[in-house]
Design a protein around this nucleic acid. Structure first.
Length: 511
RNA sequence: CGGGGCGUAGCUCAGCCUGGUAGAGCGCUACGUUCGGGACGUAGAGGCCGCAAGUUCAAAUCUUGUCGCCCCGACCA
C-alpha cells in the first residue's frame, strides 16, 4: 500500500517557486521578517551558516594578503556627493540621519530634536568614507598597496524585499584596496573575483560564471565590474558576488594622491569587492528540494546529527552512551581540514518529527541510533542528498572511517547536480524569434519557471534594450573565456541589431 | 510615488454583506496510550476584533478619519 509521496515543503518548487523559497527559510528556521520594515532577523541556524561563510572567506582574504579593519556606519552627506555617478546610483535608497536627540512631545511620545548641521547617511557601501581615510594614509608609492577588508552591515532602502536576497539592511564584507598602478589594481580585481568563484564552487557547491558587467549594469562609479553569476532552480540568474575596478574615479574625487618613485604626483587606482548574506539565498535556491534546505557539508553548521531513539529510561541510558562515544569518535575524524561537526539531538520529541526537522534544516547526514543499532554495533544512516526514506544500516566502525569521504561525496554530488542543471538550461540562441520564445512563459499565470541562460551575440544598442525591457531579461555578464559553453570569444552577429559581435553575452531573467 | 488588498488567539485565518455574550485549525501546557516515516485521545491556558470618533438600546460587524502591513509596478548586492 504505497502512500502518496509527501513533501515537507508546501508548495513544491514546481507549484510556486517564490512561496516555496519562503517556506524553506521558515522550515529551516533560518530567519524571519522583523518588526522593522524590510529588515530580517537572522536566527541561530541561519547565522551559523553565515559564520561558516565568513570563516572561510576571511581565511582566503588573509591568504591573499588582506587585513581587516572597521570604518564608521555613518557617512557625511558631502562625502557621497563627491562622486557624481556614485551618488546617483545610491541616492534613491539611502537612510538619512538628521537629528541626534529625542525629547518628550508632551503627549507621552518622543520627537526628534537637535538637528544636525550636516545630515549623515547610513552607509549603503563604504567607498567614500574609506577613500577619505586612504587619502590621509597615502603619501608615497611606498604606502601602497593598501589591502583592507571590512565585515559590516550596510543599509539600502529597498522597496521590495525578500529574506536574504534583498533586505533593507544586510551583512556583508567589502574589500577596498588602493594601488600605484592600473595593472596592479586590475589584477587585484580579478584575483578577488577568483577567490569568490573558488569559494562558491568549492564550498557552496555552486557553479558560477565569472564575467564582466556591461556599461549599463556596472557599479556606480566603477570603470569595470566583474561578477559571478549563478543559476537558481527556477532558472533565473543570481549575482552572487562582485569585484570592481574603480580606476582613478574615486581617488580623484577624494584626492588619494601619492608621489611616485619618479617624484611625480599621481592618483591611486582603487578597487572594491563584496559578497553578502545574499549568498545564503543563493545556497538555498541552488540545492534545496521539496523537503527543505539542503546544505553542502563544508558549510553545514552540523555535518552529522545523531538522533537517539529509545522507549524507556533503561534504553535511553545505553543508547545515549553509545551516541556520546560515537560522537567523540566522529569528531576525531577530519573533513575539509577540520574536525567533523557532529551534534546529538536528545530533545524529548517524537522520533519522526525530530528527524524531519533535520531534513528541513538540511543536515547532510542523519544517524538514527536505537537499541537495535546498539546491539548490532551499527548506525542507521540517511543522506540529505538522497530521499528521506532511503536509510542504510552500516557497521559503526565502517561508518566512522568512511564519514569524511561520504561528506566529500555529498559535497561533490551537490555540485555536479547543480552544474548539470545549469548546463541543461543554458543554450546558444541565434535569432530574435527564438530569444523571445525562450523568455516568454508558457503559462502566463505561473511565469516563475521558464527560460534559463541564453548565450547570444549582442551589441550595446537601443534595439537590444527595447527587447530586454519588454521581456524583463537582462544581460548578466560577458563571460570570461572557459566559463560556460558558448561563452568564449567568437565572431557573430547581434541578434537584436544585426551589428557585428566578437563574443556572446549571458542573458537571463534575474533576481 | 502610482494601482490593488488586509489588520480578529503565538501563527494561518473564518465570522462582517443581513449589528445581539469571540470562533476554527495549527502551535503551546498537563496526563494517558504511543514511538526506527511528520501520532492519537482527554483536559487546559491564551483576545482592548489595529487605533480614534460617530450612528445605535446594542458595533469585530455600519459610517468617517487615522496608523500599520502585504501584493503588483518603477529601483536594486
Amino acid at each position: 500500500m504505497a502512500k502518496a509521496a509527501k513533501n515537507a515543503i508546501s508548495p513544491t518548487r514546481e507549484a510556486d517557486y517564490p512561496e516555496w523559497y519562503q517556506q524553506v527559510v521558515k522550515a529551516a528556521d533560518l530567519a524571519e521578517v522583523s518588526p522593522v520594515r524590510g529588515c530580517m532577523v537572522i536566527k541561530p541556524w541561519g547565522y551559523a551558516i553565515w559564520e561558516h561563510i565568513q570563516q572561510v572567506l576571511d581565511r582566503m582574504f588573509k591568504e591573499t594578503g588582506h587585513q581587516n579593519a572597521y570604518f564608521p556606519l555613518f557617512i557625511p552627506l558631502s562625502y557621497l556627493e563627491k562622486e557624481a555617478e556614485h551618488v546617483e546610483g545610491f541616492a534613491k535608497e539611502c537612510a538619512v540621519v538628521t537629528h541626534h536627540r529625542l525629547e518628550p512631545d508632551g503627549e507621552g511620545g518622543l520627537r526628534p530634536t537637535g538637528k544636525l548641521e550636516e545630515p549623515l547617511i547610513v552607509r549603503p557601501t563604504s567607498e567614500t568614507i574609506i577613500g577619505a581615510m586612504y587619502a590621509k594614509w597615502v603619501q608615497s608609492y611606498r604606502d601602497l598597496p593598501i589591502l583592507i577588508n571590512q565585515w559590516a552591515n550596510v543599509v539600502r532602502w529597498e522597496l521590495r524585499t525578500r529574506l536574504f536576497l534583498r533586505t533593507a539592511e544586510f551583512l556583508w564584507q567589502e574589500g577596498h584596496t588602493a594601488h600605484a598602478t592600473s595593472e596592479e589594481a586590475v589584477e587585484e580585481t580579478r584575483k578577488m573575483l577568483d577567490v569568490y568563484a573558488t569559494f562558491a564552487q568549492d564550498f557552496m557547491a555552486m557553479p558560477v560564471v565569472k564575467g564582466e558587467k556591461t556599461a549599463g549594469e556596472r557599479f556606480p562609479g566603477a570603470v569595470d565590474t566583474y561578477c559571478i553569476e549563478s543559476m537558481m532552480q527556477d532558472r533565473k540568474a543570481l549575482q552572487a558576488g562582485t569585484s570592481h575596478f574603480l580606476g582613478q574615479n574615486f581617488a580623484k574625487a577624494q584626492e588619494i594622491k601619492f608621489l611616485s618613485a619618479e617624484g611625480k604626483e599621481e592618483f591611486a587606482w582603487t578597487t572594491s569587492w563584496g559578497v553578502s548574506t545574499r549568498l545564503i539565498g543563493a545556497l538555498i535556491m541552488t540545492h534545496s528540494d521539496d523537503d527543505g534546505l539542503v546544505l553542502p557539508p563544508r558549510l553545514a553548521p552540523s555535518q552529522i546529527v545523531i538522533l537517539p531513539i529509545y522507549r524507556n529510561d533503561e534504553e535511553k541510558a545505553t543508547v545515549m552512551e553509545y551516541c556520546e562515544s560515537l560522537k567523540k569518535e566522529l569528531q576525531a575524524q577530519q573533513y575539509s581540514e577540520e574536525r567533523i561537526r557532529v551534534a546529538i539531538d536528545a530533545r524529548d520529541l517524537r522520533g519522526g518529527e525530530k528527524a524531519w526537522q533535520h531534513v528541513k534544516k538540511g543536515v547532510p547526514i542523519r544517524l538514527e541510533i536505537g537499541p537495535r543499532d546498539v546491539a548490532g554495533g551499527a548506525v542507521f544512516m540517511a543522506r540529505r542528498d538522497g530521499s528521506p526514506t532511503e536509510k542504510t544500516g552500516i557497521p559503526r566502525a565502517e561508518f566512522v572511517s568512511k564519514a569524511a569521504s561520504i561528506l566529500a561525496e555529498i559535497q561533490d554530488n551537490l555540485f555536479q547536480r547543480a552544474l548539470k542543471f545549469r548546463n541543461e538550461n543554458t543554450r546558444p540562441i541565434d535569432s530574435l524569434a527564438e530569444f523571445e520564445k525562450y523568455f516568454t512563459p508558457k503559462n502566463a499565470n505561473e511565469p516563475e519557471i521558464h527560460g534559463g541562460f541564453a548565450m547570444c551575440h549582442w551589441a550595446d544598442d537601443l534595439a537590444m534594450h527595447e527587447v530586454l525591457a519588454r521581456l524583463k531579461v537582462t544581460i548578466r555578464c560577458i563571460p570570461h573565456d572557459g566559463q560556460i559553453a558558448g561563452g568564449d570569444a567568437e565572431a557573430g552577429t547581434c541578434i537584436f541589431s544585426g551589428k557585428p559581435s566578437t563574443r556572446r553575452g549571458l542573458f537571463a531573467k534575474a533576481y
